[in-house]
Amino acid sequence: MKNRSLPVSIFFIVLLFFACKTGYQPTTVQYKDYKVTPHQPINNELTSLLQPYADSVNKNMNDVVGSAAMELQKKQPEGILGNVMADAMLEQAKKKFNTPVDASFINYGGIRLPSIPAGNITRGKIFELSPFDNIIVLLKMDGNTLQQFLNIVASRGGWPCAGIQFQIKNKQAVNILIGNNPISGNNVYTIAMLDYIANGGDDCVMLKSIPQQNNGYLFRDAVLDFIAGKTKEGKAISSSIQNRVSNAE
């Protein structure tokens, strides 16, 4: 730089000025949505990347995880399929949270198959039964709050439950037994349910303010684990109507 003449130096200073004060700014935007349809060409690299996973997933979904001793039907106020699912929730919640749990509930609408036929149960069938990624949560509530919640359950025709027994009269829950003891307003009960309900779903607003114990355990995984446990013991899945929920006349 030393040997350069003054005009050249000035030239550079001017250039530097321009370099500092210029830039690009977006002026116009064109846009387009590409719908990804089955009629489009596919990429072989991605297809082969996916192939081993897809094969394994499909095989995995066809895996037999257990067996149903009878047709498991979804019914209100109480059904065999619901009892199996509520038992699975109660048993697995006790294990996974390592704490006593008094009762479990599943919202009736959360069961997405009308029945599971007798015979082999595949993993895919359980995904159809419980496609949502709902998590099991534990809520501690006093007997009065539990009564309010049960009244919602009763008004909706009865939901699958375990660890509890009650009757529906004029859309209210009556003759409630938890374990084998009548409900007490001041007692605190630990109830397992889906996060969907605990967050106030299906009109269960009285539950929204209650702190939730949550360890990220999917309800679907609980059902699969429950069935796997039974299969390991050499047992087929079955249940019966036990008057957990019945209509009082």
Binding site: K21, T28, V29, Q30, Y31, D33, K35, V36
Partner: peptide, 13 residues
Amino acid sequence: ILGRLDFEFSRFR
């Protein structure tokens, strides 16, 4: 859907 936005820029001082 794959979204696409094409920005055009102009130079300014």
